[in-house]
Simulated assay, not measured.
Amino acid sequence: MTPKLTTDAIALLKKLIETPSFSSEEDQTALLIEDWFQNYHIDYKRTENNVWAINKYFDATKPTLLLNSHHDTVKPNTGYTKDPFMAIVEDGKLFGLGSNDAGGCLVSLMATFVYFYDHKDLNYNLVMVASAEEESSGPNGLNSMLKIIPKIDVAIVGEPTLMQLAIAEKGLVVFDAKVKGTPSHAAHPNADNPIYNSIKVLEWFKDYKFEKVSPVLGEVKLTVSQIKAGKQHNAVPAEVDLVVDVRVNDCYTNTEIVEILQKESPCSSIIPRSLRLNSSSIPKDHALVKAGIALGRATYGSPTLSDQAVLSCPSLKLGPGDSTRSHSADEFIYISEIEEGIELYIRLLQEIL
């Protein structure tokens, strides 16, 4: 069964690549995923553009394992030399938008779900969710499914990790900050120019260190990523707007990060946009992690954000492909990575199911 599943998974990925599926516009790729489940005679459901299914012998008395990856993509950047919507195979590489992030992971997990779908007497129930709006952290993605699907006890989130075990992931808080001053005509003296005032604020952000360092995720990463001020050359503005991107380790909650920055930062105001994208992790002694280590996989902490951020249960990020290729020009995944991914997902779950 596995060779056919692998062949079918690669064929599905080629179709997904050739079907545009920007965040919140995934209706056509959702149809392709529905076709996959239909072809394998799997009873599935669709909620918005999320397509999901549970194993044939679901038992509410058992814990539930979520298999999840997403079928939306970012928009292609201007650096592409190949058609981003054409599935091109060259030298063992499958090129195309979403091939690496996260199409390879998605079809590999779907193949794995099919493999175990009609097994009896599993230790865990399985729920497969091919989710939407991951790239935009939109309201109709995996977060919206958690009240619809069965309660989840543990999850594998498919993102490109070279099939290594990302046992923790940084959270994210984005802040809108202001540095205020006195507006004036540019021709007159002004000792309270907010643009000059922002220099010491920017220096503060550049040098600031949060005390707690995670053994897995390292330091909290704080970055001023946007700045905006003024509308004309001869007028000093009243304020400077900053956007601050904070990648949160597992030593802090997002709420604690907000409290610290609102107390200590020298901004006139600093307001978080959202607190829902928390850091996530799974204990190193969890059966899933131990099974992965036994298969020769290494553990690490991931600096990038995924749908793990909306889960409250232990979760493992694991998938074929390389995160450094995500959102890049001429994105690709090796065919061999998908083959290995399906094999390793199945071997991993065989150890716990």
Rank of each mutant, 00 (worst) to 15 (best):
S136K: 03
Y208D: 02
L162G: 14
K206R: 12
A186V: 03
A168P: 07
K200T: 15
L162R: 14
Q164Y: 06
N143C: 07
A187K: 13
S225E: 09
A168T: 03
A191W: 00
I156L: 12
N190A: 13
L217Q: 07
A186F: 00
M163D: 04
E135F: 12
V174C: 10
P150M: 01
V173E: 01
H233F: 12
M145K: 01
P160G: 04
L172C: 07
P215D: 05
P150I: 01
P160I: 04
N190G: 11
K147S: 13
F210N: 01
V179R: 12
Y208R: 01
N193D: 12
E211F: 04
K200G: 07
I148C: 06
E135L: 11
K209F: 05
Q232H: 05
K221Q: 13
G230C: 09
A168G: 13
G181I: 07
P183V: 03
I227V: 15
N190E: 13
I195G: 10
K231S: 15
F175P: 11
N140F: 14
I149F: 05
A177N: 02
G230H: 10
G218A: 05
K221C: 08
P160Q: 03
S198E: 11
M145E: 04
A168V: 05
I167G: 09
T223A: 14
N140V: 02
A177E: 00
A166Q: 13
K228L: 12
G141H: 09
I148H: 07
K228W: 10
K221S: 08
W204T: 04
K147R: 06
Y208H: 07
A229G: 09
L162T: 15
Q232V: 03
Q232M: 11
A166K: 01
D192N: 14
P183K: 05
I152E: 02
S144W: 06
